[in-house]
Write a protein that binds this DNA or RNA. Structure first.
Lengths: 198, 198
DNA sequence: TAATATAGACTGACCGGTCGGTTTAGTTTA
DNA sequence: TAAACTAAACCGACCGGTCAGTCTATATTA
């Protein structure tokens, strides 16, 4: 069996795992459900992953990989920093609207990270990377004069937090406010605060 | 046994429950651990609560009650809306610094809410109430002319989200940024965006 | 080229520990 | 004397992980 077929199998497993995770959360997700959904056998899953935890840790990779390709693409473009931030927000809005499942899973990974070192480290890595990406944009904005002189780290942190706030919408119907509407308002608010006026 | 002694017993149980929850998360929290920590017996705990879930649902009440007394006190004061918002942030900073445990538990309640109707409803109620409180402040700020003409609901939502972001600090050491420092920067940023200039 | 061997991929019944909750038989408290 | 417990044994559903064995495709041999 060649490598791509192995990856296909893993994808098959992780697709199932994500669905199960979203519906039940980590602790309440059953390997037997992953078995059913993946249309493989228990043995097959334990052939590829030595434990439930290993499987879900790999789900993070799987999922981050998908995102990072697009994120890097946004940042590589030679656009205005302010536009890059807008694009970033737009990207997450689009992702959310086309499939909110990964966002739901994120809440669970957060709570996993609270009690498990391995999950915490994995999430930390993901967010550190994302923070660096934001810092890059902001730094360019400051240096080019489009943005005010800001505390780059603090600003990046604040933007990250506000992007993450998209998770609220997975949980609550916030009367009369849509994700799109809310997120677009927020990015405009942030930009109006960090851009130089003239 | 009078009511206050019963409440004291419940407090004894819920204090233990919070500790266990913080260390292990809901699913991995064991009733036997709550028994041990509370220094009561299993029978006693099931005397007061008919199930694990009931117990933890009541933990939310217990914990909300403690907060809401202080929050209402902040809002009742006849201070400037901007100052009330500052006080609110300061209150959460202080709470976090004196005891971050409830904030850690919150992450778990979030993930509970994703999969359990009862927890979701409970959290929804809590946040709805908090939103209304914020909306009250903002509305007064707008009407008194201290704030710009704002979308009250959207602004309240944004402020709530940014207060919640304190949770990040339970999970990650954010290099070189303290809770206090971060939160104070954020509230200043928000205020500078919503207050009328002169 | 048919027979045999080997490794990798996969099956699914089963096991053993775990843990929420119950029961029982008594004891203490107000 | 009823309510509020204690202590400890117990129940039984549940589920992650195991493992003996099967299947398949590709060598290797005779």
């Amino acid at each position: 069996m060649n490598e791509s077929l192995q990856n296909q199998r893993k994808e098959q497993i992780l697709d199932a795992a994500l669905k199960v995770l979203v519906q039940n959360g980590y602790e309440q997700s059953r390997m037997d459900d992953v078995v059913k959904l993946s249309k493989l056998s228990k043995g097959a899953i334990y052939w590829y992953y030595k434990s439930k935890k290993e499987m879900y840790l790999d789900l993070v990779n799987f999922w981050v990989l998908r995102y990072s390709v697009n994120l890097n693409h946004i940042v590589e473009e030679e656009a205005l920093p302010s536009l890059q931030l807008k694009d970033l927000f737009q990207y997450f809005i689009d992702q959310y609207e086309s499939d909110p499942q990964p966002f739901i899973a994120l809440t669970d990974f957060w709570s996993m990270a609270q009690k498990d070192e391995d999950f915490r480290k994995k999430l930390q890595k993901v967010y550190t990377h994302f923070l660096e990406l934001l810092e890059g944009i902001i730094d360019r904005g400051v240096k080019s004069g489009e943005f005010k002189k800001l505390d780059v780290r603090m600003t990046a942190l604040s933007i990250m937090v506000n992007i993450e706030s998209i998770n609220w919408f997975t949980l609550f119907e916030i009367h009369g406010v849509s994700v799109k509407e809310y997120m677009e308002t927020i990015i405009d608010f942030i930009l109006s605060g960090i851009m130089k006026k003239h």
